[in-house]
Design a protein around this nucleic acid. Structure first.
Lengths: 199, 199
DNA sequence: TCTATTTTTTACCAAACAGTCAAAAATACT
DNA sequence: AGTATTTTTGACTGTTTGGTAAAAAATAGA
């Protein structure tokens, strides 16, 4: 495998995905409409023109941020639901990690959840992108339930689509509720109550 | 009881709460940051100056919209949880009404849910307002569970705070998920699965 | 009809906005 | 060293923004 030959012209003074991650943080913290190009150049360190050269306009950059979030954060969370463990244990771990990240850190909730909540601020073409990204997680929940049915852990009478949707919706809800509810213990107990549906 | 004496000066050409409701619709549809004063004057029919005279600035108007939503929509939904029926039946009815309104109508989700999701767009003083408003609903769920425990319908081993939080979070989640999930039937079945936690 | 008071209308402002252009700077290749 | 190519810099544009000022219009009471 050859190393890519150096292209002619002045080399870029920034790392593209690093800049994208910085932009994502701003969109995540402020939302699409409330984020200005100035906010983005500040956060990325890129000059205005460099930002436009690299990512196109504000909306294209937002789309790229969604994609990056999907590939990094969403994929990581979904992978928890595919671990080698019982269905209940995987789901418990999912919510534990989600709540840890939330309460120990940013308290910003899921970027996709917030983006969907304000989707009307943005163009409809982006809506589809958000739907696809968030559906990765829903499908992962459904698959996790199905695994439990296959292994006999979960009753075969159960409806994996409905149960998957239930857990998925709860995850979305927590992303919102976590912003205005600082009592984590009650949220932990509510998840334990939810896990009882598997029995 | 006397009728209010007509004040001096030119009479207002609009109804204040009617204008507020129109403004609420715009904020609900577009979000705070993406709503311009022009959008608001268009929707209310008020002149720019009349809008400022009546409601103060954009943020104060948004606060008034939240209050109105709390008193109308949130209160109506919470009252379903206090009806004369079993705990399970009240909750089932709650979600039925919520999903009916969503899928038959605007598909905009709960105004409070969306506002909380983008709360960083707005001033922190408004955050408290949103928290209080949405907590009305959480408390209504807790009370509904407690009623079930008192009547013997729900096991006394259950934790009403945790279960109330569970249902409340699910309601918030549905408000988001409903925007990108057009399969209502699965949502209905997920609610039935959730109601099984009461047994 | 005149005065006091309030709302409406119209015009306006400075700031912020998204996006563009053209010149300057930095590199690879010859 | 010179040329081709690309990125960076900094200025610029027309528009939209939230908010305000002042005059015009509409009413009650005298």
């Amino acid at each position: 495998m050859n190393i890519a030959p150096m292209p002619p012209g002045r080399p870029k003074a920034f790392d593209s995905t690093e800049a994208l991650r910085a932009a994502l943080q701003v969109f995540w913290a402020k939302g699409f409409a409330a984020t200005s190009i100035g906010d983005l150049t500040d956060a990325t360190g890129l000059g205005r023109q460099s930002l436009y050269n690299e990512f196109g306009d504000k909306q294209k950059l937002f789309a790229a941020a969604i994609q990056n979030y999907r590939q990094c954060e969403t994929a990581t969370m979904a992978s928890i639901l595919r671990k080698e463990a019982s269905t209940a244990e995987r789901i418990r771990e999912f919510f534990r990690v989600a709540l840890d990240a939330h309460f120990d850190g940013h308290r910003r909730g899921c970027f996709l959840t917030s983006s969907i909540a304000i989707r009307s601020e943005i163009e409809p073409e982006l809506a589809q992108l958000m739907d696809e990204a968030v559906n990765d997680l829903r499908r992962a929940f459904v698959k996790c339930i199905q695994d439990g049915i296959d292994s006999g852990e979960v009753s075969a009478n159960m409806d994996p689509e409905a149960l998957g949707m239930l857990f998925f919706t709860q995850a979305q809800g927590i992303s919102v509720v976590g912003k205005c509810q600082r009592d984590r213990a009650t949220l932990d107990r509510s998840i334990e109550a939810l896990l009882a549906t598997l029995k």
